[in-house]
Simulated assay, not measured.
Amino acid sequence: MAVGTRLSLQLADFGTRSLLTHTFMALGFVGAVVSGLFVEGQLGIISMTAFINFTAGLWIAQSIHSLGNAATEEEYQGVLKELLNRV
């Protein structure tokens, strides 16, 4: 019998976590572009820098997470393959 909620069981799958991380990275990058183009002055520069740093931090976390998953027996072949399998 599995312990945990349905959401926690879905998040146990590396592919689901990877898709979520890539979604947050895309949103962070879009936020950086929008704030860089449409927010004026120092606030725009600071917001753009914060969004870029957030996106870079997620990228590093995903890279480390992927390296850790490579040691397992799981058949993960990248986020694009994962997305194509779910569509």
Rank of each mutant, 00 (worst) to 15 (best):
N53M: 07
L84N: 06
L58G: 04
E40T: 14
Q10T: 05
M25T: 07
I60F: 10
W59D: 11
V33I: 13
F54E: 07
L80T: 11
E82I: 01
N69F: 02
G15A: 13
L84I: 03
V79M: 01
N85V: 09
S8F: 09
M25F: 03
T55R: 00
A70V: 00
L37K: 08
G15I: 06
G28I: 07
N69Y: 05
H22Q: 08
A50F: 09
I60W: 10
F51R: 03
I64S: 03
G36D: 05
T23I: 11
V34T: 15
V30A: 15
L67W: 01
A71Y: 04
L27Q: 02
G78T: 05
T55G: 00
I64M: 05
A32I: 01
I52P: 05
N85Q: 14
A50G: 00
S35N: 14
E73I: 08
H65A: 04
L83D: 04
A56D: 02
L67Q: 06
S47G: 12
T21F: 01
L19T: 03
T72Q: 01
L7S: 12
A50V: 08
Q62L: 00
M48S: 10
V39S: 03
L80C: 02
G78N: 11
A71W: 13
T16R: 12
L20A: 10
T16G: 02
G57P: 01
Q10P: 07
G36M: 06
L37W: 13
Y76W: 08
M25I: 15
D13S: 14
V33L: 15
G41N: 08
F51H: 15
R17M: 00
T23Y: 09
L58D: 01
R6N: 05
A70T: 00
F54D: 08
L84C: 02
G28E: 11
N85Y: 08
A70N: 01
K81M: 10
L20K: 08
A32V: 04
A70I: 01
E74G: 04
T55D: 00
G68M: 12
L7N: 06
N69L: 00
S35K: 02
L37Y: 02
F29L: 15
E40L: 07
T23D: 07
E82M: 03
G31I: 00
V30F: 15
T72W: 01
M1A: 13
G44C: 02
M48R: 12
T5Q: 01
L11E: 02
D13G: 07
A56T: 08
S66C: 04
G57A: 09
G36K: 10
S18A: 06
N85P: 05
G36S: 14
L80Y: 05
F38K: 03
L84P: 01
G4M: 03
G44L: 07
K81V: 01
F24P: 00
V3T: 11
V39D: 01
I60H: 06
F29N: 11
L43S: 15
V3G: 06
L84F: 12
